[in-house]
């Protein structure tokens, strides 16, 4: 009973807004510090890979970006399902706030993957199951964002896009296995993405630091975005009026 009340308390935009406001500076701080450490380690400290030379340094941003983009899709579809089934407004807004960041990470993942693939496997792009499915995930993100912004009524927009996110999520594994099958039929693959050489422990640590930094970045950016959405949707409520009056009065001092 107490537990359900706890969740109810935080699922109300009115209480979530100040709470998330306190959380954001921490996320920004963690992201900034860890990104600085990660970049320093990744570009200046870790030794070159014995096989790939210095081109491998791309993985310090490629791997975290790809991981985050996939995790964000799952979390987004999860929030979308929660919003659709239990009609939780905050979950709907959270799903929408994650999508642009997920799409950006997918673009970064594709771009850095192409630039890493060229020196490593000799091609910017191959029609491998992983790469193709990953590209399709970008299309799903784009469709989600486009549908959400095309519908004017915010409730309908978030519900319709939530259903799309769920349908897309169900399709991702089907697409992956289809492309995999298609690929084995067409030609035996000579270059297999993902077969990394033995990784040095400092390299692994650097990558983990970057992963945590990207997590913190995602959290910060999506919280800022969801706060913007909250303000826009709740602009007629009294708590927003009080909040903004307080902040503008505070600024004038």
């Amino acid at each position: 009973m107490a537990k359900s009340r706890f969740w109810l308390y935080f699922s109300s935009p009115k209480t979530f807004y100040p709470f998330s406001g306190k959380l954001i500076p921490w996320c920004v701080g963690v992201a900034a510090v860890l990104m600085a450490v990660g970049l320093y380690m990744g570009l200046l400290v870790t030794p070159p890979d014995y096989r790939m030379g210095d081109s491998y340094r791309i993985i310090y941003i490629h791997v975290p970006a790809v991981w985050m983009s996939m995790i964000i899709y799952m979390v987004m579809a999860g929030w979308a399902a929660v919003g659709l089934i239990w009609n939780v407004k905050l979950a709907e807004m959270m799903a929408g706030a994650l999508a642009p960041t997920g799409a950006i990470f997918t673009v970064i993942g594709l771009w850095t993957g192409a630039l890493w693939g060229r020196p490593t496997w000799g091609a910017y792009w191959v029609w491998d199951a992983r790469l193709t499915t990953y590209l399709v995930m970008l299309f799903l993100y784009m469709g989600y964002i486009a549908l959400r912004s095309a519908i004017d009524d915010p409730r309908r927009a978030s519900k319709a896009s939530a259903l799309l996110a769920i349908v897309g999520g169900i399709n991702v594994p089907i697409i992956y296995f289809s492309v995999k099958w298609w690929n084995t039929l067409h030609q035996p693959f000579t270059v297999a993405p993902g077969q990394e050489s033995k990784i040095d422990p400092t390299m692994l640590w650097t990558m983990m630091i970057m992963v945590i930094a990207f997590w913190a970045y995602t959290l910060a950016v999506s919280l800022i975005r969801v706060r913007c959405d909250i303000l826009e949707r709740e602009k007629n409520s009294s708590w927003v009026a009080e909040l903004l009056q307080g902040s503008s009065a505070g600024n004038k001092q």
Partner: peptide
């Protein structure tokens, strides 16, 4: 608004397995 072009963006990725 823009339903037709939006429809293609939403649906064509999901057609991939059938095409393959």
């Amino acid at each position: 608004r823009g339903g037709g072009i939006l429809l293609s963006l939403l649906i064509l990725p999901l057609f991939i397995p059938v095409l393959i």
